[in-house]
Design a protein around this nucleic acid. Structure first.
Length: 552
RNA sequence: UGCCUGAUAGUAUAAAGGUAGUACGACGGUUUUUGGUACCGUUUGUCUAGGUUCGAAUCCUGGUCGGGCAACCA
């Protein structure tokens, strides 16, 4: 008995198509980004959906760049998109570009002109908009709509040959100016843009619109299931109309609800703005919801795939809690991250009954979640240690399982210590904590009677390395910054990044591996930042540990 | 005022006329050399009004509410 996971609506469609033998049981999907920005977690949903569907049903997926608007697009984005898709763990069958089909698309347009289904319009953008009418009033035809096929053919060729400046003419499909669907009111097929294209260079000065490129590209590739987001529903009639008139492969479009994540923004335009206006470091700033940002933050491909799996696929609008994303990365890292000790906000502890010049070596396993602990590392121990400032309280409340005068804790992987006193400076700040240790309580060899509730982490003062630690919080202070009254940037969280420049880490962390996740015991999951060097170690906090201790 | 969509615990997502379930969150407990993990338990839901039916989240009718549509963007 295999556990039955219910199907989402797209899986049901695919299974039905498989059952009826549509397309001979062949499944081919595509992921079609426009290379005008970096991929974000919303794209990850689409990627997991398109590649996942094909994988599940023995099909394939094409990576196709929807590069029909040269002024917004760039090779930099193409490269980053390929890297991100690969990093997520997917392999495309073919790397394709809508621009590969420019000749074919041009021929398609000629066919429609010959069939009397397309015409060259000399109107301005404003005139065309006005002539389209409104949702409640039909559009009105202009004098260009009646041009002969011969004239249209010649004008279109001249458009292509660069005889006209930008905006002088467009090619329009002749569909239905009275359609209740605005997209069918003689939509534009081609516009003139004397712009350099990142792939076709200056070969073209006319470029097809999305509606005249996407469905045709799907048909050329014989995509069986063309999956896009809800806002393309009104385009579907047009998608089908072009395919029918052209009598090409009948790809079908299906729509699902895009991902919305709270406390962030997801539109490429807004993300670009955050970058260009310097609110974040770059597209891969660890606070960004981009794939590259998440990667730099310490998210793993598996955690993102798991997330996409858990949020499901449906047609209703949604707003997912970031806490689910955080759950997914904790779940993954808990099983894979090596445990290390790091003191983020240090205060000195002196073990007064420990010999001045002595050092010991303690052992700490790498990962208690795995049989055998995946090995471990030596941890130097001495009379003076750094501990976390918040692990000591002058006047500890009840149930404070840490340090205060008279309280005992275990030092992780080492001894039990009891606090006897502390030292304050002139301003009243605690500067040193004095403890005594129980020699018989050594980790793994504890023969003593004393049992303690709390265990704290520490780093030997004599052996500690210094590191910069960057703590990240949500980028925005409100759940849905795009949907507030004011500009979304007014809701930026001023404390989304906190830099601790003087954290102490155990010496083993000096050889931390880039890209690997580490759990700083009791503090969270961290990973090396891309700017980290041997001289200046920099760690990013991926996510905190779940904190079940409710402060009173 | 038109057209297209959608509506199930706090958030997502199942139930294809027959016991409203699952995950995350929250809350409580057990275990613990991480106040983590693991394990156990509790909590809260079918937008609304009618109708069909032995029986409706599901089918029908009306309403309410949300999202989208009038870029030479995708």
């Amino acid at each position: 008995m295999s556990e039955e996971r219910s199907l989402n609506f797209l899986e049901e469609i695919v299974e039905e198509d498989l059952r009826t033998g549509k397309h001979g049981g062949r499944i081919l999907t595509r992921f079609p980004p426009e290379p005008n920005g970096y991929l974000h977690i919303g794209h990850a949903k689409s990627i997991c959906l398109n590649f996942g569907l094909a994988l599940k049903y023995g099909g394939k997926t094409n990576l196709r760049f929807d590069d029909t608007n040269p002024v917004k697009e760039d090779i930099e984005y193409v490269d980053s998109i390929k890297e991100d898709v690969k990093w997520l763990g997917f392999e495309w069958a073919n790397e394709l570009y809508a621009s590969d089909y420019f000749n074919q698309l041009y021929d398609f347009a000629v066919i429609l002109i010959k069939k009397g289904l397309a015409y060259v319009d000399d109107s301005s953008a404003e005139e065309i908009a006005a002539q389209k009418g409104t949702p409640t009033e039909a559009g009105t035809p202009n004098q260009f709509r009646g041009r002969s096929a011969e004239e249209n053919l010649q004008l279109f060729a001249e458009m292509k040959d660069g005889k006209y400046p930008d905006g002088a003419k467009v090619l329009r499909a002749k569909v239905d100016l009275a359609s209740p669907n605005m997209h069918l009111r003689d939509p534009l097929m081609y516009r003139i843009k004397h712009a350099h294209h990142h792939r076709t260079g200056d070969t073209w000065c006319i470029y097809p619109m999305y509606d005249f490129a996407h469905g045709q590209s799907d048909a050329i590739e014989e995509i069986t299931h063309s999956i896009c987001t809800l806002e393309f529903i009104p385009h579907r009639d047009l998608y089908n109309w072009f395919i029918e008139q052209l009598e090409i492969f009948p790809s079908k479009q299906y729509e699902f609800a895009r991902l919305n994540l709270n406390y962030t923004v997801m539109s490429k335009r807004k993300l670009l703005q955050l970058v260009t206006e310097g609110h974040v470091e770059d597209w891969d700033d660890p606070r960004m919801p981009t794939i590259s940002g998440l990667r730099r933050r310490g998210y793993t491909p598996a955690s993102i795939r798991d997330f996409c799996d858990r949020i499901g696929v449906a047609k209703r609008e949604n707003m997912i809690d970031v806490s689910l994303l955080e759950f997914c990365i904790r779940e993954d890292l808990n099983k894979t991250a090596w445990r290390r000790m790091a003191v983020l906000d240090p205060i000195k502890m002196v073990i007064t009954n420990y010999p001045e010049d002595e050092t010991e070596t303690m052992f700490g396993e790498n990962n208690p979640e795995v049989e055998g602990g995946e090995g471990g590392r030596d941890i130097p121990f001495g009379r003076e240690l750094w501990i976390e400032r918040e692990d000591f309280m002058e006047e500890p409340p009840k149930k404070f399982f840490r340090l205060g005068v008279g309280l005992s804790v275990r030092l992780k992987s080492a001894y039990i210590v009891t606090c006897n006193s502390f030292v304050k400076d002139a301003e009243g700040n605690v500067t040193e904590i004095h403890c005594t240790y129980l020699p018989e309580s050594k980790s793994g060899h504890d023969t003593g009677e004393l049992k303690v509730k709390g265990t704290i982490h520490w780093v030997s003062v004599a052996h500690a390395k210094t590191a910069e630690v960057r703590l990240y919080d949500r980028l925005f202070q409100v759940e849905d910054p795009s949907n507030e009254d004011n500009d979304f940037k007014e809701y930026l969280n001023p404390n989304s990044l906190r830099i601790l420049s003087n954290a102490y880490i155990e010496n083993d962390l000096a050889t931390a591996i880039p890209g690997k996740g580490y759990q700083f015991i009791r503090k969270g999951y961290f990973t090396l930042d891309k700017h980290s060097t041997a001289d200046k170690l920099v760690f990013n906090r991926t996510v905190t540990l779940k904190d079940g201790w409710v402060k009173k």
